[in-house]
Simulated scan of single mutants.
Amino acid sequence: MSTDQIKFAQQFIEAIPHAKALGMTVTNLQDGVAELEMPYDDRFIGDPDTGVISGGAISALMDTCCGAAVVSHPDMNGATATIDLRIDYMRAAKPGDRIIARAEVYHMTRTVAFVRATSHDNDPDNPVATATGAFTAEKTS
């Protein structure tokens, strides 16, 4: 997608209160694929003893990234909402590292988009979490 489309997507993300509060940034958006980043922030620590970011913040990032992938799909014609999202947490993110999420629409029906996602810190070969979900879809054709 063009720089203008990414800029528009970023404005859309910032209009979602929790996404804006978590500092999410759109880094890539193309046909049915989205990548978002979330910086490390002390406000979102889930375990003060270790400095590990909360699972809720990671969940919000992955849900938002999946939704962005759905609305970027070329067959989409409108907004989306989460029907179901399953997140499997693999490990704690390294304290201080940003979290990067990538989501991809792998199947689209007339009314439902199916999405897979992963998130990682600065070690892209070692996921923090994976997700699969179903989202509402209003196709253009």
Rank of each mutant, 00 (worst) to 15 (best):
Q5I: 06
I6A: 08
K7N: 14
F8T: 09
A9T: 10
A21N: 11
G23I: 06
G23F: 05
M24V: 08
T25S: 13
T25E: 15
T25G: 07
T27I: 12
L29Q: 11
Q30L: 01
D31M: 02
Y40H: 11
D41G: 07
D42G: 05
F44D: 12
I45R: 13
I45K: 13
G46K: 13
G46C: 14
V52G: 01
G56W: 05
S59T: 15
T64D: 13
T64K: 05
C65D: 03
C66I: 04
G67E: 07
G67A: 13
G67T: 04
A68E: 06
A69G: 09
V70L: 05
H73Q: 09
H73N: 11
D75E: 11
T80R: 08
A81K: 02
A81F: 04
A81M: 07
T82P: 04
I83G: 05
I87D: 03
D88H: 15
Y89I: 15
A92V: 01
A93N: 07
K94N: 04
P95D: 05
G96M: 12
D97V: 00
R98K: 12
I99W: 06
I100H: 13
E104R: 14
V105T: 11
V105M: 09
H107M: 11
M108Q: 15
M108H: 14
T109D: 06
T111N: 15
T111I: 03
V112G: 13
V112E: 13
V115H: 07
R116W: 09
R116A: 14
A117V: 11
S119F: 05
D121E: 10
N122R: 14
D123V: 02
V128R: 03
V128N: 01
T130W: 02
G133W: 02
A134D: 01
T136I: 00
K139F: 00
K139P: 01
T140G: 11
T140Q: 13
